[in-house]
């Protein structure tokens, strides 16, 4: 699934990194606890979260993620977007809630493990 498809499926607005929209991603995770992301995530390229602070961007960078989706229309500050831009991470915001956003992506084939059968 491309990052652009994620944007379309979630009705999201891209806030930075639009040059990455064509990149392919194979798995995603959703969490508000960054330590859990750091503990359990492996090779997931997309982070969905309702948490908005600079550590979300840094966590994604540590995990080599390509895209962050903020749920419930949350918008990061310009400082956060600058950080993401520096790290080459695409950032978008969707009006969907976490459960719905994850479910939508999952049912369209973007699982947590990267394999199509979950």
């Amino acid at each position: 699934m491309t990052i652009n498809t994620i944007k379309d499926l979630l009705g999201a607005e891209v806030l930075c990194g639009s040059e990455s929209l064509g990149k392919d991603v194979h798995s995603a995770c959703g969490s508000d606890m960054m330590s859990d992301v750091l503990a359990y995530v492996k090779d997931q390229a997309v982070l969905l979260t309702g948490l908005v602070n600079a550590q979300v961007i840094r966590t994604a960078e540590m995990m080599d993620m390509l895209c962050i989706v903020f749920v419930r229309s949350k918008k990061p500050s310009q400082d956060m977007l600058d950080l993401a831009e520096e790290s080459g991470i695409a950032v978008m915001t969707t009006p969907m809630r976490m459960y719905d956003a994850c479910g939508t992506l999952y049912s369209n084939g973007l699982t947590g493990s990267g394999s199509t059968n979950g």
Partner: peptide, 15 residues
């Protein structure tokens, strides 16, 4: 509320 303090820091460092 900032996304940390879940008691995963040191275990993650070991991991």
């Amino acid at each position: 509320s900032l996304g940390f303090g879940a008691g995963m820091g040191l275990p993650n460092m070991k991991r």
